[in-house]
Design a protein around this nucleic acid. Sequence first.
DNA 1: TATGAATGAGTCTTCATTCAT
DNA 2: AATGAATGAAGACTCATTCAT
Lengths: 203, 203, 203, 203
Amino acid sequence: MTENIREPKQQRAIEKKEKIIKAGFELICQNGYYNTNTAEIAKKASVSTGIVYQYFKDKYAIFIEGLEKYGDNIFFPILKNKNITFNKNDFDKILQQMINYYMSNHKISNIAHEEIMSMVHSDKGVAEYYYKRELEMTNVLKNILINNHFKEENLSERVHIMIGLIDNLCHEVIYHKHSNMDYDIMTNLVINNIKNLFKSDLT
Amino acid sequence: MTENIREPKQQRAIEKKEKIIKAGFELICQNGYYNTNTAEIAKKASVSTGIVYQYFKDKYAIFIEGLEKYGDNIFFPILKNKNITFNKNDFDKILQQMINYYMSNHKISNIAHEEIMSMVHSDKGVAEYYYKRELEMTNVLKNILINNHFKEENLSERVHIMIGLIDNLCHEVIYHKHSNMDYDIMTNLVINNIKNLFKSDLT
Amino acid sequence: MTENIREPKQQRAIEKKEKIIKAGFELICQNGYYNTNTAEIAKKASVSTGIVYQYFKDKYAIFIEGLEKYGDNIFFPILKNKNITFNKNDFDKILQQMINYYMSNHKISNIAHEEIMSMVHSDKGVAEYYYKRELEMTNVLKNILINNHFKEENLSERVHIMIGLIDNLCHEVIYHKHSNMDYDIMTNLVINNIKNLFKSDLT
Amino acid sequence: MTENIREPKQQRAIEKKEKIIKAGFELICQNGYYNTNTAEIAKKASVSTGIVYQYFKDKYAIFIEGLEKYGDNIFFPILKNKNITFNKNDFDKILQQMINYYMSNHKISNIAHEEIMSMVHSDKGVAEYYYKRELEMTNVLKNILINNHFKEENLSERVHIMIGLIDNLCHEVIYHKHSNMDYDIMTNLVINNIKNLFKSDLT
DNA sequence: TATGAATGAGTCTTCATTCAT
DNA sequence: AATGAATGAAGACTCATTCAT
């Protein structure tokens, strides 16, 4: 009675499922979970409402699958660039690059970003996804640093703080532009701060 | 038709309005905006559903008024303690105290905290409230530091970064306890980082 | 969140609730539970769909309340005529009267009768109602017989069989009229049979 | 458009049709008509949903064919044992055997029994089936009795009442066990009653 | 002012049946 | 003959808001 969710086998069906995920994820990211209804999703996916429920348990499942499929691009693109080497002397530049990268990423999908962050704060499933990936990202960065001969002492903590600093910076720059804030200065301060975090490795 | 919202003048009516705000805010903070309905709010406030719409335009207005009334206690308690003096040599202790204060505050109302942060990310009105108060807080802290003879150069930026560091730390400690993280070490790192931010003032 | 079923207090509201029960019960009895929808019920009761769910947990509850309110009239009218005395010599006549009574009752609400019997066989709640009342009826009849000096030995069993005989007879007569059956003869046979059941009391 | 129902001729196709009937009938008997959907039926029959509609006009037709195929086993097994002879002196034993037989039959498929009885009361087609077979059974029993030299006077009526008595007894014993009922006594009473029905033949 | 009854549009979800392949 | 993907109407139920009293 319950478990009638079909895993599509035909190529066309697979594509259809993808379309639903994409449509659903996009709409929810644009307008919010509660402001998006299944009819809209189906319509945007050029699909009947019925078929949606053959591929997904419910509306929520659509979003979660979307998150799993597209979330990393929005939040953790670095998870796909695990092999970065650099010269310690270039740490500044690397950080600047990372910030730029992060920033442009934020910019592209800033509404999605906010909607999902909203759910990170209100929905258990989304929070679970987010914090798991955040941990992964911490580990990826740790490994990059270790490969570049940084000391392992308290590395998790340092990296976590570093991520927080960058994240806050980007968020500040992209979203609220507190009018009295000079972002170049802020960026420099953040970079200096991060370097301070790793000063024992950089001297 | 719009302006049928009554501003209560009688004492009893004022109390009634307060009860609605309190009940609504609490429920929404506990269960989320979309999981709270007006009937529940009215019931919790020991009030009829009809009366709600004589004091408030809609459900949303209840929450916003609640936010304005109670939000500061949750997010910006420091706004009520504007006159802090300290000796520069005690900066460490002061930071530690601030962190503790922030932390205990987070702890007390952590569900509310999350629910509201969720709306900061999805609702314009809530975001507006939040960022405005955040700016106020920045200014309060700036003034405290200026009163304690810190230099004004890039002070907004420094303070903003400092707040971000503390906030991240608290959030990490209270919510997700990434198992591999040592919070004492993290706290020390954060304090050192903040001191680094203000190193020109502290030497 | 869940338990928001209102017990109406105002007179008008009480009447409205009654109207819903009546409308729902009638429609379901006419067309069957699955062929009746809440919109129809609301419409027949001259009420909005919403209000239905303030008085009833769900569609099923409407039916059950209807059953409790009207069911006895259909199935167990005798429960309202508990004080019957008769002379043993008139047992024949009494039985005949009872059969006639039963029969006319069946006739009046024969569709309802069938729909409900259908649910007695498929729905736990309805079965519960039915068998409980059936037992009550057995007891009422037992008492009547005891008051008329019938022996108590195996009385429950005798009465139960008696009820079955009458019920079958009525059902046969009213519903399917097997063409080769002579109902007068059948009725006489049934009466004789019942008398045989009680022969030790009747001689 | 209507007559697109194919009557399968190939052996494999016939088997497929049988499987659908069996699966559909079983599921409906277990869970009820409205709680069984065609997808489940197809799945249980290891068949595609599409094919179902090439062999059957609709879901209802599946059930009716199932009823016609398997119903007799459940309700009228006696229809398959038409040639019973006995000595009048053994009438008691024969009745007892018949009751036992009926009872064990009831027991085996008691859920199916109830589900179908439910539909007898709510669905014209099922009622038609049922009453037709009931009549057949009456005739079979009549013939058996005639072959055993019972008088033909009012035989239909007598047999019909007899069937009713047995049926009620079995139902009582198997389903609701009214706690205050002694079933051995009840059984004896029923047997005596039946013998009374035929007393002119048994003396 | 206040009540709480009433509204009805809106939402998710199901399912018998049809269609493209 | 067969598959299983697709359809879309229909249904139960919710809830912000309004209305009669």
